[in-house]
Design a protein around this nucleic acid. Structure first.
Length: 199
DNA sequence: CGATTTTGACCTGCGC
DNA sequence: GCGCAGGTCAAAATCG
C-alpha cells in the first residue's frame, strides 16, 4: 500500500480490510462507525446491518474484525435519542471509531475542553468527555480505552464543527516533512473532515 | 491571571 | 417508584 505525497481526504483506505499504514506504528484505525445525517452521503460502506444499540454494533464489529482490520459501518438513524414527550431530538452527526494508539487523546486539530470523566460499566477505564472549546461550537467528543483491550482507544464525535480548524495546517507538497505523529494527526483530521464536513 | 482539568454532585432516561 | 448507568454541571485545583 502506498500513500500519495498529498493524500486526498477520500479515505479510501478505510475500506481496505487489510489497511495498516506504514506511518502508523502506534496508531491505526481498527473499527469505525458513522452515524450519518438523514440521507447519508458519506460514501462509507456499510459493513453490516447495525443492531439497535451502537455499543452492540461496536462489539459485533469488534468480534468479527479480529482486531487489526478496518471495519466501517453506518449506524441506524432510528437510534436517535428521544425526548420524554416523544419528539425526536436531532442527534446530529455522530462518528465513532476504534483505534490502536498509545495515547489516549488524539490531536485532530480542534481544541477540546474536558468537562467530565466517568467510569462506565464493563470497562475498568474511565471515559472522558470533551467539548469543542470554540465559541458557539457544540461538538462533543467521548474518549475511552477499550475495556477488553486497553491498547485500543474508542473515540466518539458528536455533532459537526461550525468553524474552521484552529490549528489549520495543510499538507505541503512533501509529506516527508511531517514526522509520523503529525501524519497520523492529519490523517485523523482529514478523516474527521470527510465524515463530518463543516456546515 | 485566564484557561484548562479534576471530581463529586446532580440530572435524565430506562428497565424492572 | 426505585435503582442503575450514562451524561453534564460547576466549584475548586492546577497549569502555563
Amino acid at each position: 500500500m502506498s500513500f500519495p505525497q498529498n493524500p486526498n481526504p477520500n479515505f479510501t483506505f478505510l475500506s481496505d480490510e487489510n489497511f495498516t499504514s506504514p506511518f502508523m506504528d502506534n496508531f491505526d484505525f481498527s473499527n469505525l462507525m458513522v452515524d450519518v445525517d438523514e440521507g447519508g452521503g458519506t460514501g462509507l460502506v456499510q459493513e453490516e446491518a447495525s443492531p439497535p444499540r451502537s455499543i452492540v454494533s461496536w462489539e459485533t464489529l469488534n468480534g468479527e474484525s479480529s482486531g487489526s482490520g478496518s471495519a466501517v459501518t453506518t449506524l441506524n438513524k432510528n437510534e436517535s435519542t428521544r425526548c420524554k414527550d416523544g419528539e425526536t431530538k436531532e442527534p446530529g452527526h455522530r462518528v465513532a471509531f476504534r483505534t490502536r494508539s498509545k495515547i489516549d487523546v488524539m490531536d485532530d486539530g480542534y481544541k477540546w475542553r474536558k468537562y467530565g470523566k466517568k467510569s462506565v460499566k464493563n470497562n475498568i477505564n474511565k471515559r472522558n468527555y470533551y467539548k469543542c472549546s470554540s465559541e458557539g461550537c457544540m461538538v462533543k467528543k467521548r474518549v475511552e480505552r477499550d475495556g477488553k483491550d486497553a491498547a485500543y482507544v474508542i473515540t466518539t464525535y458528536e455533532g459537526v464543527h461550525n468553524h474552521e480548524i484552529p490549528s489549520h495546517v495543510y499538507y505541503s507538497d512533501t509529506v516527508s516533512s511531517y514526522d509520523r505523529d503529525n501524519w497520523n494527526q492529519h490523517s485523523l483530521l482529514q478523516f474527521i473532515q470527510q465524515i463530518s464536513p463543516p456546515s
